[in-house]
Simulated scan of single mutants.
Amino acid sequence: MEWYNVGKIVNTHGIWGEVRVISTTDFPDERYQVGNELGLFKTDGSKPIIVKITSHRKHKNFDLLTFEGYTLLKDVEAFRDATLKVSEKYLTELDENEYYYHEIIDCTVISTEGETIGTVTEILQTGANDVWTVQPSKGKAHYIPYIEDVVKKIDVDKKEITIEVLEGLLS
C-alpha cells in the first residue's frame, strides 16, 4: 500500500492530547475530517500507527488534531516530529489540471523546444500559485511558477512536464 504525506506533527498543544500539524496537503478539511484514518509514521522507522481523527480545528498557521484513544498530553508526546500520511485508498479524483504532489515530484521538465531543464524536486506554496523547484543535472535549481503562461503540458503517466521558457525564467 502506498502512503502520501499530508502533514508533520511539530508539537503538542494543551493537555488534552491535541497535536500541532504543519500541513502539506491542499485539502486539510478533507484529510483531517473527523472519523478519517491516517498513518502516523514516527521518526524511529517503526511500523506506522493508524490513528482515527476525533477533532480538527485551525489555530494560527497550524491544524490542531486529536486522535481516538489518545486523550492526554502524555499519550501524544511521542508523536512529535512524526509524519501523517494518507493511504492511496483515500485519494479522490481531482478536477482537470489539478494534480497531487506525488504526481508532479520527480517529473522531468522540458522546454517547448525539447531541451531538458531538470527534475521537479519540491513544490512551494506561495499563496498565489505553486512554484516548482526544478533541479538541473548541473548547477543551481530553477523555480518554475505553475501558471498557464509557463506550464503547457503535464503527462503524469510519462512523468513529463512541458514548459514555455519565458525571458528570465531560468536565470
Rank of each mutant, 00 (worst) to 15 (best):
V131C: 09
E88K: 11
S23P: 10
Y101D: 07
W132P: 03
S111Q: 08
D26L: 09
Y90H: 11
N129G: 07
L64K: 00
Y90Q: 12
A82S: 14
I15Y: 06
Y101K: 13
L91R: 11
K85T: 02
G17D: 07
L84V: 05
T12D: 14
Y143S: 07
F41K: 14
P48E: 04
G118N: 02
T43W: 02
D26M: 03
T133Q: 14
I110S: 02
D29K: 08
T24C: 15
H56I: 04
R31N: 07
D95Y: 12
Y100F: 15
T112S: 13
N129Q: 09
L72D: 11
T25N: 07
H142L: 12
I110N: 07
D63A: 09
V131R: 02
E88N: 09
G139I: 00
H59Y: 14
E96P: 06
C107I: 05
V109E: 05
L64E: 06
K47C: 08
S111L: 00
V76K: 05
G14M: 08
L124E: 08
L40T: 01
N129F: 13
E115G: 01
A78D: 11
F79W: 03
L72R: 08
V131Q: 01
V86F: 12
L91F: 07
F67N: 00
K138Q: 06
G127D: 00
A128V: 03
L73F: 11
D44C: 12
W132T: 01
N61I: 12
Q33A: 14
I144K: 02
D95F: 12
I144V: 14
I49Y: 09
K60R: 14
R80S: 01
D63C: 09
F67G: 00
G114N: 07
I144D: 05
I9N: 06
Y90N: 08
P28F: 02
D106A: 15
F67Y: 00
T66D: 06
Y100D: 10
V120R: 03
G127H: 01
D29C: 07
N11T: 10
A82C: 04
V134T: 03
Y32H: 02
S137R: 05
T121N: 02
F79G: 12
F41Y: 05
V134P: 05
K47V: 01
T83C: 09
N11Y: 13
S111V: 03
L65I: 02
T43K: 03
K138M: 08
V86N: 02
Q33F: 15
P48K: 15
L72S: 12
T133V: 13
Q125S: 15
Y32F: 15
T133M: 07
G14F: 11
R31P: 03
T12P: 12
D75N: 06
I15H: 09
R20A: 10
F27E: 05
V21Y: 04
F62I: 04
T116Y: 00
A128K: 14
Y143E: 10
G118C: 03
D81Y: 15
A82K: 06
E113K: 00
Y101I: 14
I53L: 10
A82I: 10
E93P: 01
V34D: 13
K52E: 10
K60M: 10
T116M: 05
